[in-house]
Lab assay of single mutants.
Amino acid sequence: MLEGKVKWSNSEKGFGFIEVEGQDDVFVHFSAIQGEGFKTLEEGQAVSFEIVEGNRGPQAANVTKEA
């Protein structure tokens, strides 16, 4: 699992980007967020995730919010 911080997200469009130190930003779709209820990410929020190869390149999977 990698750790990063949410660079920005748009809940209306359903995606955002995660900033990882020393690496390119990672695309995240809201379907990759683990948990119940409305899935949102806040700018600056710490997250853990895996990287998978998506249709348009690397993207985050199994995203969990850190406490």
Rank of each mutant, 00 (worst) to 15 (best):
M1I: 14
L2A: 08
L2K: 10
L2E: 05
E3F: 15
E3S: 15
E3L: 14
E3C: 15
E3H: 15
G4E: 04
G4Q: 01
G4C: 06
K5H: 11
K5R: 11
K5V: 14
K5N: 08
V6D: 04
V6G: 03
V6K: 00
V6F: 06
V6Y: 03
K7V: 08
K7P: 05
K7G: 04
K7H: 06
K7N: 05
W8M: 02
W8K: 01
W8C: 09
W8H: 04
W8L: 03
W8A: 00
W8G: 01
W8R: 00
S9E: 05
S9Q: 08
N10D: 11
N10G: 03
N10S: 11
N10C: 11
N10Q: 06
N10R: 03
S11K: 15
S11L: 14
S11D: 08
S11Y: 12
S11Q: 14
E12T: 11
E12G: 09
K13N: 06
K13I: 07
G14R: 13
G14M: 11
G14F: 09
G14V: 06
G14S: 10
G14A: 09
F15N: 01
F15G: 01
F15E: 01
G16I: 04
G16K: 00
G16V: 03
G16T: 02
G16P: 00
G16R: 00
G16L: 04
F17A: 02
F17K: 02
F17W: 07
I18P: 01
I18S: 01
I18H: 01
I18Y: 02
I18Q: 00
I18R: 00
I18D: 00
E19D: 05
E19Y: 10
E19N: 06
E19T: 11
E19R: 12
E19C: 13
V20D: 01
V20K: 02
V20I: 10
V20G: 01
V20Y: 06
E21L: 12
E21S: 11
E21G: 07
E21K: 12
E21Y: 12
E21M: 12
E21F: 12
G22Q: 05
G22T: 04
G22M: 04
G22N: 07
G22I: 03
G22V: 02
G22W: 04
G22L: 05
Q23C: 12
Q23N: 09
Q23H: 14
Q23G: 11
Q23S: 10
D24N: 13
D24H: 10
D24C: 14
D24T: 09
D24G: 11
D24V: 11
D24L: 10
D25W: 06
D25L: 07
D25H: 03
D25Y: 05
D25R: 02
V26H: 01
V26L: 08
V26N: 00
F27L: 04
F27Y: 08
F27K: 03
F27R: 01
F27S: 02
F27Q: 01
V28N: 01
V28F: 15
V28G: 01
V28D: 02
V28P: 02
V28W: 15
V28T: 03
V28C: 06
V28S: 00
H29P: 08
H29V: 04
F30Q: 05
F30W: 10
F30C: 06
F30A: 04
S31T: 10
S31C: 09
S31R: 03
S31P: 02
S31Q: 05
A32W: 06
A32H: 06
I33H: 02
I33C: 05
I33L: 12
I33T: 02
Q34D: 07
Q34M: 13
Q34H: 09
Q34T: 13
Q34V: 14
G35C: 10
G35Q: 08
G35D: 08
E36W: 10
E36M: 10
E36G: 11
E36A: 11
E36V: 11
E36Y: 09
E36L: 10
E36P: 12
G37I: 07
F38Y: 12
F38P: 15
F38E: 14
F38Q: 12
F38W: 11
K39C: 12
K39V: 09
K39G: 09
K39M: 10
T40D: 09
T40V: 11
L41C: 05
L41Q: 01
L41G: 00
L41A: 02
E42H: 13
E42L: 12
E42S: 11
E43V: 15
E43Q: 14
E43W: 14
E43K: 15
E43M: 14
E43R: 15
E43H: 12
G44M: 03
G44L: 02
G44F: 04
G44D: 03
G44S: 03
G44V: 02
G44E: 03
Q45S: 09
Q45V: 10
A46C: 14
A46L: 15
A46Y: 14
A46I: 15
A46N: 12
V47N: 00
V47T: 01
V47E: 01
V47F: 01
V47L: 06
V47M: 03
V47G: 01
S48P: 01
S48Y: 13
S48K: 15
S48R: 15
S48W: 15
S48Q: 13
S48L: 13
S48I: 13
F49E: 02
F49W: 00
F49G: 03
F49I: 02
F49K: 00
E50H: 12
E50P: 00
I51V: 09
I51S: 03
I51L: 11
I51F: 03
I51G: 01
I51R: 05
V52R: 08
V52E: 06
V52T: 08
V52P: 01
V52G: 03
V52M: 08
V52Y: 08
E53C: 15
E53V: 14
E53G: 07
G54E: 03
N55L: 15
N55P: 15
N55K: 14
R56E: 06
R56F: 13
R56I: 07
R56S: 08
R56V: 06
G57M: 03
G57E: 02
G57V: 01
G57F: 03
P58H: 06
P58E: 04
P58K: 11
Q59T: 07
Q59K: 07
Q59P: 04
Q59W: 06
Q59I: 10
Q59H: 08
Q59D: 01
Q59F: 09
A60G: 03
A60D: 02
A60V: 03
A60K: 00
A61I: 13
A61H: 11
A61L: 07
A61K: 08
A61V: 13
A61W: 10
A61M: 11
N62L: 07
N62D: 01
N62A: 06
V63P: 02
V63G: 01
V63D: 02
V63C: 04
V63R: 00
V63I: 05
T64P: 01
T64R: 14
T64M: 13
T64F: 13
T64N: 11
T64W: 15
K65S: 09
K65C: 08
K65Y: 13
K65G: 08
K65E: 04
K65A: 12
E66L: 15
E66Y: 14
E66Q: 15
E66C: 15
E66V: 15
E66R: 15
E66N: 14
A67Y: 11
A67M: 12
A67V: 13
A67R: 09
A67W: 12
